[in-house]
Amino acid sequence: MTDRFSQASGTSAVGGVERRSTRSWSGVAWPTLGVGAILALVPLWLGDSRVMMGIAVLGLAFAAYTIAFNLIFGSTGQLFLCVGALAGIGGYGGAILADVVGLPIVVSIALSTSAAALAGGLLSWVAVRRSLGVIFTGIVTLIFALTFENLLLGLGELTGGESGFLMEAGRGTFLRSQIPPYYLMLGMVLLTLFVYGSLRRSRFGWAFRALRDDEVAAELAGIDVARYRIFAATIGAAILGLAGALLAFTEGRVSPTTFGFAEVDVVVLVMLAFGGIGSFLGPILGALTFTVIDELLVEVGQLRVFIYGALVIALFLWLPRGVVPALDDLLRRRRAGS
């Protein structure tokens, strides 16, 4: 990866865990539980409004997307511009398996999550095999994402084309109620966060950091770069697929825009850039911050896209490590100074 982004993790509490003990699980479990405890309170505040709870569920789905993208791009330097498409394999796959094929919901979710994991692993395998590099990996995965979008539109009889379709499966169950879907999604995000945190602390974490800092040196030190890349992409894609499937079943409908490049990938990139590429809690903070900002900006309509663009530029130019790690550093310096 590049020099600019490789400093992303490291010395800060949000930005990295290297400084503290690398052995115990508590360093992952406590922050995860802390995040969980705070987010578990959200329905007390917004629980009355169906619309707000829908937005909160979507925000959690984006938190999972961002963590997964961070695992794939931030940790192993694979620019996967098909976050929406992989989540869409989970979402559309689950919806079609449950509604059209008639499988039980849990089986549908498991199968579509596996399909997404397989797709992500295959993409990574191809990229590693052909040693595509960051840019060409980005282009190939972008082509994959656009192919997926056009397949959704082209296979209208199965996918409902441009408007998508309303799902029968799960109707009348807790999946369509107001508050339980939130806790289901929250459980998934916390599991994701815990898996990601544990990976960072295991030998995978060391390998990730080594191959991000200097790929050739990592290879020479005996790290099987290809294997770790494919592994990270498979796990990341599984998270994306699961999040996409859960989102589909709780919203009760799927549409191309739910998983579109402009609607998902661009937003996830902004969220990760804000939270800090390669950091542990940054992605979830970035995702939640932007869910709130997005809601606040609803009024300005299309200008929102303009503001997003300006933010992308500003973030990558002046705060390439991310706003959250930068703030964290500032606080630390303050504390050390006083």
Partner: peptide, 14 residues
């Protein structure tokens, strides 16, 4: 790639 994506969003949104 990242910066020009930002420019693209700005122009599109505007």
């Amino acid at each position: 790639l990242l910066l020009s994506l930002g420019v693209a969003l700005m122009i599109d949104g505007f």
